[in-house]
């Protein structure tokens, strides 16, 4: 759901990270390349920390087509839930 976000995070956040957990092999290429340390592997799962700048380095280097970035407008943000929705 898209809404205008009044809190501090949205100013930095320019992308929504869609992770396909069925494809992701948790190789960490994206984790190590992300310039803002937005990605982490926690409990055998790749997660994002909602500070994506939409540079798409992760998407470009992911060997398994498991991560895609949806660019968003400066002032909008998608609520936390939706960032991991792309499971299939």
């Amino acid at each position: 759901m898209i809404k205008t976000a009044p809190d501090e995070k949205p100013r930095k956040r320019k992308g929504i990270v869609h992770i396909n957990h069925e494809y992701c092999k948790r190789c960490s290429i994206c984790v190590n390349f992300c310039p803002v340390k937005n990605l982490e592997i926690r409990g055998q799962k790749l997660i994002e920390l909602e500070r994506c700048t939409a540079c798409k380095i992760c998407q470009r280097y992911c060997p398994d087509i498991a991560i895609e970035i949806e660019e968003i407008d400066d002032k909008t943000v998608i609520s936390g839930e939706s960032s991991h929705h792309n499971g299939g």
Binding site: E22, Y23, K25, C27, S28, Y61, P63, D64, I65, A66
Partner: peptide
Amino acid sequence: LPTPWCPGCGNGI
């Protein structure tokens, strides 16, 4: 997908 390649294998790139 996924391919049978190891995690981090460059073949996917």
